[in-house]
Simulated assay, not measured.
Amino acid sequence: MPEPNGVALVTGASTGIGRHLAEGLARRGMAVAGLARGEDRLRTEMDVIADSTGARTLAVAADVTDREAVEDAVGRVLGEFGRIDLLVNNAGQMDAEEVPVWQADPDEWWAVVTSHIRGGLLPARAVVPGMVERGSGRVVDLASGLSTRGGRLYSAYSVGKTGLMRLTEVLAAGLEGTGVHVFDLAPGVVRTSMSTSMSLHENRTEWTDPEQVVAFVAAIAAGELDQWSGRFLHAGMDELDRLRTTQPDATQRQLRLQPYADGDPAAG
Rank of each mutant, 00 (worst) to 15 (best):
Y154R: 11
L185M: 12
M165Q: 13
R125N: 12
E211Q: 05
D238K: 10
I17W: 05
G6D: 10
G160W: 09
N5F: 13
A33N: 06
A91I: 11
T44P: 08
E98I: 10
V32C: 08
S195N: 12
R37Q: 09
L233A: 01
G54D: 06
E176S: 15
A36K: 09
S195K: 02
A50Q: 06
L9M: 07
N89K: 12
A126C: 09
G79K: 12
A104W: 08
L25E: 14
M1C: 09
R253P: 04
Y157Q: 05
E45R: 12
P129K: 14
A172E: 05
H234E: 10
V127G: 11
L142T: 05
T251F: 01
P265V: 01
D264E: 04
A266N: 06
T196G: 12
L240R: 06
S52V: 00
V170A: 13
V32H: 02
L78A: 10
E202H: 14
E71Q: 13
D47L: 08
M46C: 08
A31F: 01
L86T: 07
A173V: 14
T178V: 15
A73F: 12
E98K: 13
V70Q: 04
M198E: 13
T178S: 15
R83W: 12
H181N: 14
N5H: 15
G137T: 02
E239M: 07
M30H: 12
T15A: 11
V10E: 11
S52R: 06
G151P: 03
H20E: 00
G79R: 15
T251V: 02
G34D: 15
Y260T: 03
T168P: 03
P248E: 09
E202L: 14
M131Y: 12
T178D: 15
I117P: 01
R134K: 00
V32F: 07
F183S: 04
E202C: 15
H201M: 15
N203W: 13
